[in-house]
Simulated scan of single mutants.
Amino acid sequence: MLERELLSVGTMSAQVANHIGSRIVSGEFLPGAALPIESELCEYYGVSRTTVREAVKSLAGKRLVEVSPKVGTRVLPFAEWNLLDRDVLAWRLQTQFDGKIVEDIFEMRFCFEPRASFLAARDGTDDDLAQIEHHFRELAAAQLEGLPVKTTSEAALEFHLAIINASHNGLFVTIGSAVKSALRVSSEMLQRHTTRPSEDVALHEAVCLAIVGRRPAEAAKAMERLLAASRERLLPLTVDAA
């Protein structure tokens, strides 16, 4: 039954990795603990050794586990995890959706997105500004027309990435690429719980107009308001951190 269930939603190795990853992030397997041996995982999931090895390799790439010939596969400390990996973020949000995770994501975003907006307004090229305006129009249309969450969240992601790229700050652009998974996850969560699309559009429009109008200080403030409103919308949906 488990094998048929996994096959229905994706490749076997990906789904085994997804299940084990969720168990690690939820605390079922604590840091330093050994995962069940390969044969036990094969029996539990009803899959081949090759499938289990591919799943474990994927988790090792996310720095959730480390494989050693002498001690087997052990869970790494939290500090070692690749917290910007999309799957790791998703597992944390699914199993530990608490205020701390939301605060972590938005504290990171507050650190550089308002300044990126300032720089985009000041230093962005005409083509950069046209891209920002284009992605805003796509986002506004998706929200107001009630398009699927994935469509709307991707439009929001592209809007924010366009602003970061328009900053022409090499480090910001690198950070933007690195935190793309965090931006995507937060965008998906926000769009899933949007209750007043017109207000969201207005907040994004204020950022867009300030950047396109080349008003740097106003652009930074508008981004701060947008992020603050987004954070406040997500926090009530969280549970208290343990």
Rank of each mutant, 00 (worst) to 15 (best):
R74E: 03
E66H: 10
P36A: 10
R86W: 09
A33K: 08
W81G: 03
L119K: 07
R115Q: 13
A34M: 10
N82F: 06
S68A: 09
R115N: 07
S117K: 03
A130N: 07
R49F: 03
F97S: 00
L129I: 03
T51R: 03
F78I: 01
D127I: 01
E38S: 14
L59I: 08
P31Q: 03
A116N: 13
G61S: 00
V47I: 11
P36I: 14
V75D: 08
G27Q: 02
D85G: 00
H134W: 00
A33T: 14
R53E: 12
P36H: 15
A34C: 09
S58I: 08
V65I: 04
R115H: 14
Q96M: 02
F29K: 08
F106Y: 14
G124Y: 00
F110R: 08
I37S: 08
I20Y: 11
S48I: 01
F110T: 01
R109S: 05
W81E: 04
S48G: 04
G61V: 04
R49Y: 11
I132M: 02
F110W: 02
S26Y: 11
E107V: 07
R63Y: 12
K100V: 12
G72W: 13
R23L: 15
A90Q: 09
L41A: 15
Q96R: 09
F97A: 02
A60F: 04
E133D: 13
Q131H: 12
G61N: 04
E103D: 06
Q96F: 06
I132T: 04
E54R: 09
A55V: 02
E40Q: 15
R109D: 12
K70G: 07
F78V: 14
L119R: 00
